[in-house]
Design a protein around this nucleic acid. Sequence first.
DNA 1: TTCCAGCCGT
DNA 2: ACGGCTGGAA
Length: 405
Amino acid sequence: MLTQFSQSEESLNTFAPRLLNWFAENGRHDLPWQQHQTDTPNPYIVWLSEVMLQQTQVTTVIPYFARFMDTFPTVQDLAAADWDTVAEHWAGLGYYARARNLHKGAKQLVEIIDETGDFPQTLKGWEAISGVGPSTAGAIMAMGLHRYGVICDGNVKRVLTRWAAIDGDITKSATTKALWALAERLTPNENSGLFAQAMMDMGATLCVRRNPNCQLCPLQKDCIAHAEGRETDYPVKAKKKPKPSKFSNALIIGNEQGEVLWLQRPDNGIWGGLWSLPLEFIEKTEGQKSRKMATGTQKLNVRSNEKLYETEFTTAEQIINDWLHENELVAQPVSSTLLDDAPIKHSLTHFHWYLQPQRLVIDKAQVLELNDKLNAANIAFKWLDKQQALDGLGLPRAMEKIIAI
DNA sequence: TTCCAGCCGT
DNA sequence: ACGGCTGGAA
């Protein structure tokens, strides 16, 4: 079965040489993960940088990459590290499942290296590593091993949907398939690593989402979207649903030494594996806030739709919320201004989150009681002052915002 | 202030 | 098909 492409054979055949020529003369060659590149490619550097770059821009990744390479110069160093050290290095980059998969992947890689003497050498071998999917595996094959590899990430999809006027929704599997087929058709057998870098660089610097710089583009003469003046109509994506809003109290529970209680979040869900203040989900309806009660303790009127939020309590938060309620302890709102509450707004993938810091100081006996309850449930927790928390814990940005008040 | 991109796991 | 985070741009 011959796949049909909207571009001519001539255009398909000259795509790679035009792009490679542009990259050689105008591309970026001094990114940190490129500087480390020599005639002997380093799969560790490519794997680490590609995972960091999966959902994050180059300028954001640069300092994180430098710090990772400093602390974990080899995959063995990363595999041997404690999770908390890895989390602290990743904190702020977001999508923390990437960090958990990276750490797990390092252990998988070390096991393979111990068995075979080297990193995986095949696409399938890399795709078996946690956190490595088809595009990252292709990038590692091409740039990390100097073998043949095809990438089809967001940059590539933007370039190709414009150049070939592919107007299917790129979130649909049929369109994804077509884009991969085109990417494979265009990737040269030689220098697929340079080609991958060139595609990503072109997409990131010229063929950008808004105001693409078509004048400098080596693909301009046969770009269908450009010919139609419809560059920004591509790529086609389904419209997004509006995000709902959620409201939570972030409990700053202090002891008499001025230390605050921190909880490690479970691996799944928001901020998985990082540290957070205990959260107390609240429901906001028609301007009224009502305190959310954990299962089994509700003495207040329970609304019929409250179950929607129950699963969002972690076990630790249920214990703390129950204990506070039993002891009739109520935290007081902390305001950045004297006059009114100023919740921290934090937007996540599919909802906006309003976090209201609330403070409460408990005495020595209460601390011991709470510690006992958390220990009994095997909860990971720490009492730390602000600076200790900032320096020693992997904190999500939202927590940094809260303790900055 | 609001909107948006982005790849993998489940 | 959906959830996950943040910084940058409009």
